[in-house]
Design a protein around this nucleic acid. Sequence first.
DNA 1: CTTTTTGCAAATGATTTGCATTAAC
DNA 2: GTTAATGCAAATCATTTGCAAAAAG
Lengths: 138, 138
Amino acid sequence: MTEHELQQTLRDRGQRVTPQRILIHRAIGELDRHASAEEVLARVSESLPNAALPTVYATLELFEELGMVRRVSTGVGPTLWDPRTDDHQHTVCRSCGAVEDLDVGIDAERLLRAARRGGFRADSAELLVGGLCARCAH
Amino acid sequence: MTEHELQQTLRDRGQRVTPQRILIHRAIGELDRHASAEEVLARVSESLPNAALPTVYATLELFEELGMVRRVSTGVGPTLWDPRTDDHQHTVCRSCGAVEDLDVGIDAERLLRAARRGGFRADSAELLVGGLCARCAH
DNA sequence: CTTTTTGCAAATGATTTGCATTAAC
DNA sequence: GTTAATGCAAATCATTTGCAAAAAG
């Protein structure tokens, strides 16, 4: 999503276009990797020194809702936010917490359909492959 | 794994058979559902009032290593521990955090193989379908 | 008797909440 | 002007750590 599309989307939703939102959007694009809220804040702080963590958290959640980022909760270390929203999965190192992309398709539609059978309103499927990264495995 | 097998396994590994470990094993079997460390402690406390949370955490991790439980980190609420270790997946309600079993096979071997290509020592694959449970969706 | 395991208290890390102030619209 | 969004401080929640005491082998 471009900066302009973001502005349009926010206006369409009756939400405000703030410098924080624009800069967080830009920071995510520039970091271009799985980043924690803290890391996003650090980047944003370069241009907006008073930016606050709660704002970053709220904004990342908003962006997730807009389909602009994917949340990756691994259980080891903080939640990471992924700027890639296309179909791909992740590996997670149990030791150092490193998250890497795994370009393997899963039939998400089939899984969502199965989940919906029980009345569950499914909207996403996240697959994590756990183990030890090359470095931590020695 | 039976209680007797657990005792044998611990001895084989040179680890000690303690009442805490036996009772936590029993509690997991009795609860027979996705339970948090706190919930396991509550159950264990019925028979061992002084049991402590750090012991429960350490023991659940040990049991995970022994393949007796599966860790389910959802990012909403505490980590849950699943006594079912056969091939199945989970749904997670983004609103209330409820975790339910999803009996859909995924070709885990294929995923692990793909993950290993990059030198990653993969050993598990966890799939979470996110959305809203029937209750939270209205 | 040696070493692991436990319980307790305190620390840590991540995230969320309350609320007065600021700034979009 | 109104209302949403922000920043700050403090609270909360889950988990981990340090360490002395207890207990398994």
